[in-house]
């Protein structure tokens, strides 16, 4: 089944295929494709645009959420924050009747230390995969979070207990367990690229691409998925679910773009990635802001980031004070993809 989903991109492959493409691409070819490497991302986009002092705003989820709420943005409701080992016993009280919730470290990154609880079975908590956690297990996890096990540089940390997002049915259909999220990468407040990350059986509910999750490119102009990759290879059908990944319209796309741009404005970071989930009832919710977004997004979109970043740099020089609407309009006008036929 997974093999059948791998398709060759006929046009480009036949046009430029060279024997070495099986193993590598030359730097010249990558430059021509506009691919941005880690060194380039750090030196040209992160370091000059993201001052160190602003990192705290996004590395600490409590601060990011508070900031987002100030700006009237929808975020997952916070049930409580465990700050001391003593509080760990009060988790039940914090939940206040909510049976499903998420526990995450406030300073975690890359989904480390996140536990999703779907419901209760007697005293035990049930994860989406069906495994059960005893209240003791949960307390232990919380104290690990407090000890800084999952935080950047092992700093002491707090555990955040919040609303468990129930993704819109359209999106859950694209994901094997786990909740798909949308990543929008932006420079100077211009959305430059977006992708949907959906988990597979292999990625085990997580949405990290190098763990086997799918990266699905989204057209900035329309919010329609255009392309999908699995482990760097093009696919068009979910390897586990037999569902077409291409041509899906992401709901409330304009809201998503506006939320992303607002995130840039509120944090002041020049180059950032915004993670958004779409809840069945509450609509798009801002999950986190990432000050060091990865590079896999250009693989998912099949476009080198440079091709999008350079026009933005030029535009930003021309109109340094463009407002939210102007920025979105610019991105929509310039960053539209070759659209595949809409799914019936």
């Amino acid at each position: 089944m997974p093999d059948a989903t791998v398709i060759e991109d006929e046009e480009t492959v036949t046009a430029t295929h060279r024997w070495w493409h099986r193993w590598f691409r030359t730097p010249g070819e990558l430059r021509e494709l506009g691919v941005v490497g880690i060194n380039m991302r750090n030196a040209r986009f992160l370091l000059p645009n993201n001052p160190r002092r602003l990192y705290e705003l996004v590395d600490n989820k409590l601060r990011t959420k508070a900031l987002a709420e100030e700006h009237g943005m929808n975020v997952a409701e916070t049930y409580g924050v465990v700050r001391t080992p003593h509080d760990a016993n009060k988790v039940d009280k914090m939940l206040g009747g909510n049976e499903s919730f998420v526990i995450k470290p406030t300073r975690g990154s890359g989904g480390k230390g996140v536990i999703v609880i779907d419901g209760k079975n007697g005293k035990n908590f049930v994860k989406p995969s069906g495994t059960e956690l005893t209240p003791g297990d949960l307390r232990n996890h919380v104290s690990n979070i407090l000890a800084g096990l999952f935080s950047l540089a092992g700093k002491r940390d707090y555990a955040l207990i919040e609303y468990r997002v129930h993704p819109a049915a359209l999106l859950t259909a694209l994901s094997f367990q786990g909740a798909p999220d949308i990543r929008v990468v932006m420079l100077h407040g211009y959305p430059v690229m977006a992708m949907l990350r959906a988990s597979t059986k292999e990625s085990d509910g997580r949405s990290n691409l190098h763990q086997g999750a799918l990266g699905i490119g989204i057209d900035i102009a329309t919010g329609i998925t255009v392309r999908a990759i699995h482990h760097g290879r093009l696919v068009s059908i979910h390897p586990d679910l037999d569902i077409d990944l291409i041509g899906v319209q992401i709901p409330e796309w304009d809201t998503i773009l506006q939320m992303s741009v607002t995130c840039q404005e509120m944090t002041g970071l020049g180059y950032l990635g915004v993670d958004i989930m779409i809840d069945e009832t509450k609509g798009p919710l801002m999950i986190e802001v990432n000050a060091r977004p990865g590079l896999a997004i250009q693989m998912a979109n099949g476009i080198g980031l440079m091709k999008r970043l350079e026009p933005v740099v030029a535009q930003h020089l021309r109109r340094p004070n463009a407002d939210l609407a102007a920025k979105i309009a610019f991105s929509k006008a310039h960053f539209c993809a070759k659209l595949p036929p809409m799914r019936p």
Partner: peptide
Amino acid sequence: GRYTGYRLSELIRFKSFSNA
């Protein structure tokens, strides 16, 4: 520290990069 070119590993990582 100011080298902004590709890392050798990236030449392999992006080997299957194809234009949309």
